[in-house]
């Protein structure tokens, strides 16, 4: 079984990777993308994931680990593995604002207006949710970013139970740094 942490960029996927690691689950990641002002604790990415659409032959490496796979690349996960997906959901206004900040720091134009981007993300997430529900080799745990920060003591055991792995809920909860919740919609 492979644990996948997924969602849109800036929806809390790096935070969830830290939580799982603190709980005792090994991660499959490298240091290719170092920590920066957008993710001061690091990205917890595995660079081969970026090319998942072209090459998924390496995925057996992820057995028994947690790996971060951005939402759109879930469609490219090979069918021969079983996946438990912790799917991060966050207010889209916060996601888009945070992405725009990150794009600016990378000196990349954000392109579309926020409302247009929101519509595209909504359509993307809706279609993905339907698709995932039809995959016999995928189970999904939707995890709300703000709830995870507000009530980690409650959600950490639920994630552990979903994964069917005995993780340390206290350590998981202590991995959360609420000061990094910087883009709030309200």
């Amino acid at each position: 079984m492979i644990t996948v942490v997924s969602g849109l960029p800036r929806s809390g996927t790096s935070m969830m990777m830290q939580i799982l690691q603190a709980g005792g689950l090994p991660l499959l990641c490298d240091q290719e993308r170092p920590a920066d002002e957008n993710n001061p604790r690091g990205y917890f990415e595995y660079q081969k994931v970026r090319r998942l659409a072209a090459d998924n032959s390496w995925l057996a490496e992820a057995e028994g680990h947690a790996i971060k796979v951005v939402s759109q690349l879930l469609y490219h996960l090979p069918r021969q593995f079983e996946y438990c997906i912790v799917f991060m959901r966050r207010d889209l206004t916060e996601v888009i604002r945070s992405q725009e900040q990150m794009l600016a720091s990378r000196q990349v134009e954000s392109g579309l207006e926020q409302q247009a981007m929101r519509e595209h993300f909504t359509r993307h997430l809706d279609a993905l949710e339907i698709w995932m529900s039809k995959q016999p080799n995928m189970r999904v745990f939707p995890c709300d970013f703000s709830r995870m920060i507000a009530d980690p003591a409650r959600l950490a055991p639920a994630i552990s139970a979903f994964l069917g792995i005995l993780l340390d809920p206290e350590r998981m909860a202590s991995a959360i740094d609420p000061t990094l919740y910087r883009q709030k919609a309200k």
């Binding site: 960029p9 970026r50 759109q72 990150m102 990378r106 247009a116 993307h124």
Partner: peptide, 21 residues
């Protein structure tokens, strides 16, 4: 058509953020 356009815009955004090639 709308779905295809949205997936394309999402892909461009993810590329801009460095999450996919």
């Amino acid at each position: 058509v709308e779905q295809a356009q949205s997936e394309d815009e999402v892909r461009k955004r993810l590329q801009g953020l460095g999450y996919i090639e």
